[in-house]
Design a protein around this nucleic acid. Sequence first.
DNA 1: CTGGATTGTTGATTTGGATCAATAAAAACT
DNA 2: AGTTTTTATTGATCCAAATCAACAATCCAG
Lengths: 252, 252
Amino acid sequence: MDKPRFSTHHSQCEPQAIRDALVEVDCEDCGLDPICMVLDYAEEASGVPEGVLVRRHPVERGETIFRQEDPFHSIFAVKSGSFKTSVEYAGRSRQIIGFQFPGELIGVEAMSQKTYPCTARALERSSVCQLRIDRLPESGRPLETLQASIIQLLGREVTFSHQLVSSLVHQSAEQRISGFLLSLSSRLTRRGMPGTEFILTMSRTDIGSYLGLASETVSRVLTRLGRSGAIRLRRKRILILDRNTLEQLTAG
Amino acid sequence: MDKPRFSTHHSQCEPQAIRDALVEVDCEDCGLDPICMVLDYAEEASGVPEGVLVRRHPVERGETIFRQEDPFHSIFAVKSGSFKTSVEYAGRSRQIIGFQFPGELIGVEAMSQKTYPCTARALERSSVCQLRIDRLPESGRPLETLQASIIQLLGREVTFSHQLVSSLVHQSAEQRISGFLLSLSSRLTRRGMPGTEFILTMSRTDIGSYLGLASETVSRVLTRLGRSGAIRLRRKRILILDRNTLEQLTAG
DNA sequence: CTGGATTGTTGATTTGGATCAATAAAAACT
DNA sequence: AGTTTTTATTGATCCAAATCAACAATCCAG
C-alpha cells in the first residue's frame, strides 16, 4: 500500500503523513470545536439526533463537497487534507477564492444564503466533519449558545476577508506570494501541523488565481525566493528556511 | 428626451438634500431594521432599557464614531450621510477598506473581536443609529431572534467581502472603477436614494486606496469615462449616463 | 512501459498603471 | 476680500507583471 518514495534524496525519511495528508487535526484545534462541544461530540451518547454532526467523512481528490448554487444545509470542517473554493460568474473564468486546511471551515459564507456561493473541491485525499445547520434546532441543545459560536466564527471570517482585500490589492507579486507562504505556514502551525515544511497541494494556476497573478509570475517568484535562500522549493514541496526574510518581503 | 445635465449653474435648483446629505434612509430600508423590529423601535414604549438603541445621533464631517483598537460595544447604521472605514497596520500607511451609505452597517466586522479592527470616519455631516451589542441581553428581547438577525447580516458581509476580493484582484483599473460606480449606484438605489446622480463624498485618494490604485489613475479613468459618455463628471458629482457601457466595462 | 495530457519553468516582448512633476481648481482659513 | 492648504487634473517616464512562446518535468491511461 505504501511507497512514500518522494522526490528527494532520502525518500524513506519522508513522513508518509505529509504526502498523503493523513494527518488529522485534533478536535481541540478545529474551528468547529466550540459547536461540537455544545453538541457533546458523541451524538449517540448524548441524545443528539443522528445526522446533525457527521464526522470524518472521506473525500477523494478532485471531488466536491458542494457546488455553487447547491442549496445550503451544512458547514464543513476540514479534518485532514486540503480544499479549494472557487466561484464562477456568468461565463467568466473560474476564480479561486480560498484554500482550507485541517481545522478550518468551509461553507461559512453560505450561512445567510439559500445556496452555496462557491464550489469546494478537495485538493487531495481528505476528510471533513459536517455540521447540518438546518438540523441544529433538532439537536436539543440551547440554540443561543450555538448561535453565539456561529457569530464568533462568522466574525472571524469577516475580519480575515477584510485583511485579505486590503492587503492583496496593494501588494506586489513578491509581497503577495511571501505573504501567502507565511499565511499557509502559520495556519498549519496554529492547527498543530508542521509549518516549516509542507506541500503546496494546489497548482501554480490556483495560487495565481487566488492572488490575482499569472501562473508564470507565481512560478518565477517562487524560484526567485528559492534562489535567494528564503525557501527551499522542490516542485510542490516547500521548506521555509528564513521566515524573517519572508516577513520583510511581505511588508515591502 | 433631453440631455441630462448638472444643475451647477443654477445652484438654487440643486436639491439641498443631495448637496448636504440630509436625506435620511427609511427605517424599513435600513440594515439594522430586523434588529430594531425585535426591539420594537421605540425603546421607551416597549420596556427596552435606555441606551440599547441610540437613534439618529449626528456626526460632523471628519469625526470618527470609533477608532481602531477602541473596545467594541456597538454596531452602527448610517441614517444619513456617508462614512469611510480604514485600517493602519504597524506604521504602514492607512488604507481604506470600505465606504458606508445610508441604511448600511458599520462595525459589524468587530462583532467577534474585543476591539474595532478599523476606524470609521464621517465623509460629510451624517447621522447614525447605534445598537449597543453589549447591552442586548438587558433588552428583555429573545436573544435567539436577535442572534439570528446578526448571523444574517454577518453572512451577507462575508459574501460581499468574498466577492470584493475575488473581483478586485483580477480587474484592471477601468474595471474596478466602473464596478465601483455601479456598486455605489445600486447600493444607493437599494436604500431608496437617487442612484443615477450622486456625490462622491470621498476623495480620489480614498477611492484609489480602496481599489488599490493611485489617485492619478482614478482621476484619469474617471475623465476617460466622462469623455466616452458613460458618465458625466463634474468634480465630485457623478451622473450615470450609460449604465450598460459601465456594466460591459466592468465585465471586461 | 509508452504516448499523450497536464503542470511547471524559463525567456522575450508588451503594456497598464505607478511614479515623478507641474498646474489648476477648490476649500479652508485669516 | 485675499492667502494658504488641500484636492484634482494632466503630462512624461519607468517598471512590474501580463502575455506570448517554447520547452521540461511529471502524471496518467492504456
